[in-house]
Simulated assay, not measured.
Amino acid sequence: MQQAIIGFHVDEENDWVADLACGHGQHVRHNPPWQNRPWVMSEQGRQEKLGVMLACKKCDDEGHQ
Rank of each mutant, 00 (worst) to 15 (best):
W16I: 13
G25D: 10
V40H: 05
K57M: 08
W34L: 00
Q26W: 01
L54Y: 04
S42C: 03
D61Y: 05
V17I: 10
C22E: 07
N14Q: 12
E62R: 12
E62A: 14
V52Y: 06
I5W: 08
H27E: 09
R29F: 00
Q26Y: 00
V10Q: 14
Q3D: 05
D60N: 07
M41L: 15
Q26G: 04
P33C: 02
E13Y: 12
G25T: 14
K57I: 01
Q65R: 14
W39Y: 05
V40N: 04
S42T: 15
E13I: 01
G45Q: 06
G63P: 05
N31C: 08
N36D: 12
D60E: 14
I5P: 11
E43P: 02
D61G: 11
H9N: 09
I5F: 11
H27K: 09
V28Y: 02
E48K: 12
R37H: 10
C22T: 02
K58C: 07
Q44G: 04
A18G: 06
K49T: 07
Q47F: 02
Q26N: 08
F8T: 05
Q65G: 11
N36L: 01
R37A: 09
A21F: 01
H27S: 11
A55E: 11
S42M: 01
E12T: 10
Q35Y: 09
A21P: 05
H30I: 02
Q3T: 08
K49C: 12
D15N: 13
R46V: 04
G23P: 02
D60R: 11
A21T: 08
E13H: 10
G25L: 04
H30D: 14
V40F: 03
E13F: 10
W39D: 10
D19W: 04
P38I: 01
